[in-house]
Design a protein around this nucleic acid. Structure first.
Lengths: 208, 208, 208, 208
DNA sequence: GATGAATGAGGCTTCATTCAT
DNA sequence: GATGAATGAAGCCTCATTCAT
């Protein structure tokens, strides 16, 4: 069988495993349940993965990357860097529909799995987030240079705030009924707007 | 009858179970491991709990309440409501030491357990958070009336922001090495300060 | 505590144990359930019985003897031996009310327990039934001598038939709804009547 | 796939389980013991049965049907309905050898299991026996029409008697040493003979 | 390559019994 | 004498994994 088939099969397994984790919890991801959901036999899994842990990891990675991809896609068509990136990126990144809801559930499973097991996995996650922080930081600085973001705020503070708010919003949104999520997340846009520099920085006092 | 305080024994079990969840993960909380950690036989657990699920729930509740208690204790000695409540409360509430680190790990297990199982447990969590939001909202409004918080910010926005930031900070802090956590969380204090009304809104421009 | 108290307590335990066996099955007779039903603590049972098997045996014996007693009581007031003994004895012996229903259920448990375990218990049961057969046989012979039972039937045949029919009727009645049991058992009386000698053995052919 | 006939494997399990019940009692039918007796691992049982109760039921059914089959086989070669059916049928039906002894022990376990648990199982047993009674009744009536059975006896009485006697004989035979069983059961044949109409009902008095 | 039967460790729970109080 | 907490074996069941077909 060609490599592409092998890979696409692996992804299919990861995808279904991810859905099982999201819907029933990590402990419900058994080889039996997975094979049943995939419509194949138990033994076939061992052709694509050496152990169950590999499957779990693949499911984690799949969901994690889907969220990242979703965010990248949201700004892919935008041509120039601007503060306007934030809104679609946040919208795309947060669990505001069923698909991203599932992915976030899996991502949290990933986080707590790594936290518990420690080791390489945890290091990878930390590293990944750290790199993302650097990117964000640079992004803010660029926007500040371009005059799209107020210069009197420490970029690092914005970055930290953004990371905590998005993570917390994602967590909290999972417990909010789907119809109310949009409105619940809307306040984030207001905060983004507060980052814009005051248009007429003349004589008047600007409260915030 | 052997002299045993039934409630304190239950709490001891819940406490140890909570520690196991935090350190090894929920799936490592087996009756064998728990009994071993408690230094007693497996059968003894059934004297205090009717099922393992009850133990899990007790462990969840124990850790959850410990965080709440920690925050309440932090402001217990303060005599008058003021914005100064926030700093010690946040400091007490976030996972900035080993004990609260364990409790937050368990709390996240609780959240994701409820999210997966749904049912009454999820409803309870949502209700609890909802009530806390109302309290927070009233708190902000009171501070605004007292002139301790700027009146040009929607209280609801502050509440939402606070909830998401604390939740996200807690999550993110868990992945930060303990020594760096204090400094990582410090930015929150800066944000709290930004809520204070501008002392002298006279001639000078105050950017934010 | 005086012996009479000790004995009456033992009987109470046996009685309640017997009821549990009848209603829920032998495997539902646990020390916990028994103590609960008795309204006493688990430990108290060991004052009266050395092991659970002793309790089971006592329960078996209690129910077994109650059936025997019931039958003896039924003919206690009758002054002279006659075929009329049979009807009240059968009526008293069979599971025609709730109490004797329970006792028979226990008795069958006893039989199958002995059959399985073998040993002394089985020997005792066989011995007991054997003695009863002898009594019955003598009883029939006496009635035949008195002319109350036809002399052309082998007494042993009557005895065997009676033992099998009563045992089988008891077993089958347990599966018949209580209201229908009386009518179901009534045919036995007709058979008893057939044992009576033909009153006028003259010229006419008497088929049977 | 390993070559295994699923149904024959199920029957094998049921058969061995049945033997264990007969020899050691229902409570000795543990998964461990059963697996050991089958010469396989414990886990294999779950391939063929969803629970232990299913195994118990299969064992019950297996033994129950074996008795029925044994009786049917006994009259299979007989070409015409006649009273002569009875003797081989009874002989085949009663526990007169080791195999049918085991099956009857299991059947009694089945009866008392159903009696205790009630529910659908009990209803099924009652229904089965009820249908068998109807068949027997029709059989008797047919024989009466053919002149093979005396017409002065109520068919229903014969049926009831037969059912109780067979059930009781089976029960009592279980407690009789194997060598004596044949002679113990022989009286039943005498009773069957009494059902035959008197050949020459002429002048002579026939007492019975 | 695909199948699913087989394995046996380990999950939770229940049990009769013991014994400190 | 009475209590019920403690014990640990053994109950049933589920699991990831292996391997003959």
């Amino acid at each position: 069988m060609r490599k592409v088939d092998h890979d696409s099969r692996r992804e299919e397994v990861a995808s279904v495993a991810s859905r099982l984790i999201a819907e029933k919890g990590l402990e419900a991801l058994t080889t039996r349940a997975l094979a049943k959901e995939l419509g194949c036999s138990i033994g076939v899994l061992s052709h694509y993965f050496n152990s169950k842990e590999e499957i779990v990891m693949a499911a984690f990675k799949w969901a994690d990357q889907r969220i990242d991809q979703r965010m990248q896609n949201a700004i892919a068509e935008l041509d120039e860097i601007s503060l306007d990136y934030f809104i679609p990126m946040i919208t795309a990144g947060l669990p505001l529909d069923e698909a991203s809801d599932r992915e976030w559930r899996v991502r949290f499973n990933l986080y707590h799995y790594c936290l518990t097991k420690g080791g390489k996995g945890l290091k990878e996650q930390i590293e990944k987030i750290s790199q993302f922080r650097v990117l964000m930081d640079e992004f803010i600085r660029t926007l500040q240079k371009k005059g799209e973001v107020r210069r009197d705020i420490d970029p690092e503070l914005i970055t930290k705030m953004a990371f905590d708010m998005v993570m917390g919003a994602a967590q909290n949104l999972l417990m909010v009924p789907m119809p109310e999520r949009q409105s619940h997340a809307a306040y984030l846009f207001a905060i983004v707007e507060k980052l814009r520099p005051v248009k007429t920085p003349t004589i008047t006092a600007v409260p915030a």
